[in-house]
Simulated scan of single mutants.
Amino acid sequence: MRWRKFVAVGDSFTEGLDDPYPDGTYRGWADLVAARLAVDAGPDFGYANLAIRGRLFGNIVAEQVPAALDMQPDLISFAAGGNDVLRRNFDGPKLIKEFDEVVGRLRATGADVLIFRFADVMARLPGQRLVGPRVAMLHEAIGETARRHGARVVDLYADDEFLNPVLWSVDRLHLAPAGHRRVAAHVLGALGLTPDEQWLVVPPRPAPTPWLAARGADLRWAGQHLVPWVRRRLTGRSSGDNITAKRPLLTPFTDRPS
Rank of each mutant, 00 (worst) to 15 (best):
L163I: 06
L56Q: 12
I52R: 01
S169N: 04
Q128N: 13
V9K: 00
L212T: 07
V153K: 06
A207S: 05
E101H: 12
V65H: 04
L156M: 12
G132F: 04
T145M: 15
G46R: 14
G58M: 05
I142V: 15
E140D: 15
S12M: 12
A38V: 11
K94V: 12
R134A: 01
P248C: 06
T194G: 03
V202L: 02
A108K: 09
V187G: 03
L37T: 08
V202S: 05
V187E: 06
R172K: 13
D40E: 11
G127A: 07
V153G: 07
L173E: 05
T25C: 11
R152K: 02
D218L: 07
A30I: 04
V170S: 09
P93C: 15
A178T: 09
A68G: 12
R105A: 12
V7S: 04
R53G: 08
E161C: 06
R233G: 14
Y47P: 01
G82H: 06
A207E: 14
G223E: 09
R88P: 01
G127M: 01
A38I: 11
V135M: 02
P210E: 13
L75E: 12
K97G: 14
D100W: 12
A222W: 05
L75H: 05
A190I: 09
P66V: 10
A123I: 06
W168C: 02
R215D: 08
G58V: 10
T145N: 10
P228L: 12
A178Q: 03
R53Y: 07
R231G: 15
I96G: 04
P43R: 00
R181K: 15
G143K: 05
E101T: 12
V85P: 08
N164R: 07
H225P: 03
I52T: 03
E161P: 00
A123K: 04
V202C: 04
F99V: 04
A8I: 09
Q128V: 13
W211H: 06
R232A: 04
V61W: 03
R148G: 01
L226G: 11
M1D: 12
A108N: 15
E161S: 07
V33C: 02
R124C: 11
D196P: 14
G28Q: 03
G28T: 03
K246N: 08
L56P: 06
R87G: 02
F99Q: 04
S77D: 13
V61D: 01
L191N: 03
R107A: 09
R233E: 14
W29V: 10
V39T: 07
V201C: 00
N164V: 12
V135K: 02
G223V: 10
L17D: 11
D255R: 10
A207C: 03
F6G: 01
L106P: 07
W229H: 05
P165S: 15
G28C: 00
L125N: 15
T209S: 09
V135T: 04
A190M: 10
K97A: 14
L188Y: 10
G127W: 12
P177Y: 05
A41L: 08
D91P: 01
R53Q: 02
R215M: 07
D91E: 13
R88D: 15
A146N: 13
G189W: 09
R107P: 09
R152W: 02
L234R: 08
R232Y: 06
